[in-house]
Amino acid sequence: MIRVENIHKSFEENQVLKGISTVFEKGKTSLIIGASGSGKTVLLKCLLGLFQPDEGTIYYEDKAIGIMDDEEHRELREEIGMLFQGGALFDSMTIEENVMFPLRMFTRQKKSEMLDRVNEVLARVKLENVNKRFPAEISGGMQKRVSIARAIVNKPKYLFCDEPNSGLDPRTATIIDNLIQEITHEYNMTTVVVSHDMNSVMEIGESIVLLKDGVLVWEGTNQDIFSTDNKDVTEFVYSSELFKKIREVQQKEG
């Protein structure tokens, strides 16, 4: 569980986050959604400790990251898996080496044990016979799956995903979304996904927070999103022609 209390973050004169408070629960896929420039990525980077909030506190379980010493920070980072927008695979390493990387850095396992674990997670993300290939030799969707495999190989407690299906076709995007949700339940992780993709919201949004201009304007689930009267939600959701049509159909059907 991650608890965020009254986070503020500014860059020079530009106030990006204005008092965000929320909870990301364990075993659930939580989505941070919002238009470009709403502060989603800055919030994610604050959660990851890459940005220090100007004000407010972030708690991992009951421990505030602001008061952790270096050792506690290092231990926390070992419990975090991250899926980057572009995959962020190390292009000089093979797929096998990429997935094995966290194990090599943080465990004292034998190579055979590491290989077994690598093959296990690659099979889990439905990738086979790619171990010796380089990231540039596989498709974008496969790169995302490798990135998921790398993120979960060390059995993290927390998984963060930055726009995991950007640049993917709708079918592959759905596969990646479902994979993230399945793995979240399987590993009982706290998963936080930053997205502005409405398909993701509907597929995996067990818990959703909507940001607008750095302010948290709505919280709910994917079931609540069509029934809410919140103006910011309707503006965000129905900016898509597809969802406008869905709403028209729903209204006609009463």
Binding site: L50, R77, F90, D91, F101
Partner: peptide, 17 residues
């Protein structure tokens, strides 16, 4: 620089390296 652009350095930092 390429590692910076493609977020590979961020990936190392997030892993605590």
């Amino acid at each position: 620089g390429s590692m910076r652009v493609t977020e590979q350095i961020d990936a190392l930092d997030v892993m605590g390296i």
